[in-house]
Amino acid sequence: MRILFIGDVVGNKGMKMIRDYVPALKQEYRPQVTIANGENSTPMGRGINLSGYKEMMSSGVDVVTLGNHAWSNPEINDFIDDSKRLIRPYNFPGENVPGTGYTIMNVNGFRLAVLNFQGRVFLDNLDDPFREATELVKSLQSEADAFFVDFHAEATSEKLAFAKYMSGEVSAVVGTHTHVQTNDARIINGKTAFLTDAGMTGPADGMLGMQEKSVIERFLNQRPARYKVDEDSRGIICGCIIDIDEKTGNATKIEPVKQMENGLF
Score class of each variant (00 low, 15 high):
G14H: 02
K164L: 00
Y21I: 07
L66Y: 11
G11W: 14
R226V: 09
G60I: 03
V61D: 11
D150H: 11
M210A: 08
P74N: 05
I87R: 06
N189V: 04
S233Y: 01
T103K: 02
G109M: 06
N77W: 10
D230C: 06
H69D: 09
P43N: 13
I187N: 10
K16P: 07
T252P: 01
T134L: 03
T65K: 00
A146P: 06
P98Q: 03
F117I: 09
H179R: 01
A251H: 05
R111T: 06
M166F: 02
K258C: 13
R223T: 15
A133S: 10
Q27S: 13
L208Q: 02
V257N: 14
S214P: 07
D124Y: 11
D245G: 04
D150M: 10
Q27D: 11
Q211H: 11
L220N: 08
A161P: 01
T176H: 02
V137K: 04
D82L: 08
A113S: 08
G175F: 00
G199Q: 02
S83H: 09
I35E: 13
T65P: 01
P89A: 14
G263E: 13
L86S: 03
Q141A: 14
K228Y: 14
T252Q: 00
V10G: 02
F162H: 03
R223G: 06
N183P: 09
I241P: 08
V9W: 09
E231L: 02
F194P: 04
N77T: 01
K138S: 15
E132K: 12
M210Y: 07
T176R: 04
D128G: 04
E143P: 06
M105Y: 02
G94P: 06
S58G: 05
V121C: 05
T65R: 07
G209F: 05
Y165H: 11
T42S: 15
P203Y: 03
K191A: 15
L126C: 11
P31N: 12
E212K: 14
Y29H: 15
F5T: 13
M56F: 08
F122K: 03
A161K: 04
M56W: 12
I3T: 15
E28H: 10
K228F: 14
L115I: 10
F130T: 01
D127R: 12
M44L: 13
R131L: 06
M57W: 10
R88C: 07
P74F: 02
F147I: 07
E55V: 03
A225G: 11
